[in-house]
Design a protein around this nucleic acid. Structure first.
Lengths: 226, 226
DNA sequence: CGCTAATTTGACATGATTCAACTGAAGTGG
DNA sequence: CCACTTCAGTTGAATCATGTCAAATTAGCG
């Protein structure tokens, strides 16, 4: 059953019967290609995704990472086509919700629309938080804030938040945080030397979450939204 | 009459009679204070605003600028209180829309909710565009992209887009773009030397918009949303 | 295993910030 | 109406953080 936060059980049952479809996505496939016309909203069931755009000279920029329970594709409602690509970081699965068919829900449509608004509200907060991070914070603070936000997301889903495996590469992290890969690597090492973090590749163990929060000189995203 | 894009005339009339109130805001006043509980959405009628947050060590970060026709306050729907402050850049006026009262609209609520979704969709696109700008682009490209986006917004409202007076200070621009004031100033001068831009203080005249777009190595925001 | 890609590490280059001084514009009061 | 103050903006020089390049190391996968 797709875990779209906030919909109660009878709503989910109704949605499932009307408009949902389950879909598996392999690591090398594409969930959404930029420019594709919008007709479907996706709810992530398992795995992880990245939203990606391309600058005029062809370099990739990661806009956001997405984890289970989150909705993808809403921002395309406005223009009827997707401005960004969405790619899986690992083998994943999603639920497809046909946007047009949602109208079939009739009286329930209103409730679902409110869910959309709530979901987009979280997205706006996240993106604005991101702007603040990139606009005012140095490399050390960005990486610390990133780790704290990942831990918070995992914690929200009841997963171990002090020890986990990152689904994205150092490359992806650097891209997302506006830093060179090497800088990300150096920051991880610096935290390691300070006994704040133990990291071997993608395997990560947080030793001192409070120190990380202190370094991340910005209201943590988890206090605002995910 | 408040110009909330997309609402047709009878909707506006209905909204006005039910829930809208006009309000003037002086340059030294505060439209929304961070932490304030959410109950009102604002539609900008005249002037300009900035959305501002504060990092843990007290430094201000401008999240976005807002111009007439845009909605403010929507991202607070999710948590019931405003995460950011909104301040006028000059004497301005807004329309207040009481969010709770919107429910009184009954059958029209659905249409208005769709407008909210569209408005937030635009906001998400803008903020993601911003993240890409801060994450991948250098000072020269950021400033160019900023000027292009301002010109596009003015153009959308039928105002002269090649000659205008910026409502915000160099300080604000630097803060918004994640650059020091001095860097912004140097970029303006550089564009001046290249006959791309004539700028004396806030008075700005674009001489070669195509050159600016070329420098701004990123899909212009105006092609996505404003 | 052995290959390939990802990550780490070090040395160096450079773009942006910082600091400090200067200029110009916008008032303000005598 | 003109000095005086104030604040925004500009300019220059020095410093520093981060990017770039190149090489070594490690991890992942067939």
């Amino acid at each position: 059953m797709c875990q779209v936060a906030g919909l109660d059980t009878k709503d989910i049952a109704l949605l499932e019967s009307m408009v949902m479809r389950r879909q598996r996505i392999a690591k090398d496939e594409t969930l959404i290609a930029a420019g594709k016309s919008f007709d479907t909203i996706y709810a992530i069931k398992s795995g992880a995704f990245k939203t990606v755009t391309t600058t005029a000279d062809g370099q990739e920029q990661i806009i956001n990472f997405h984890f289970p329970g989150e909705l993808i594709g809403l921002e395309a409602v406005e223009h009827g086509r997707h401005a960004y690509s969405v790619l899986p970081l690992e083998d994943s699965s999603v639920c497809r919700l046909n946007y047009a068919n949602l109208n079939v829900l009739g009286p329930r449509m209103k409730d679902f629309q409110h869910q959309l608004i709530r979901a987009m509200s979280r997205r706006v907060l996240h993106d604005q938080w991101m702007s603040a991070l990139l606009g005012t914070q140095h490399a050390e603070q960005r990486v610390a804030a990133f780790i704290v936000s990942i831990a918070a997301r995992l914690s929200d889903r009841g997963l171990p938040a002090h020890q986990f495996r990152l689904p994205m590469s150092r490359d992806d992290i650097g891209n997302y945080l506006g830093l060179a890969v090497e800088t990300v690597s150096r920051m991880f090492k610096q935290f390691h030397n300070r006994d704040i973090l133990m990291a071997r590749g993608r395997n990560t163990q947080i030793k001192d979450i409070d120190a990380l929060k202190g370094i991340a000189n910005i209201r943590p995203l988890c206090d605002i939204a995910v």
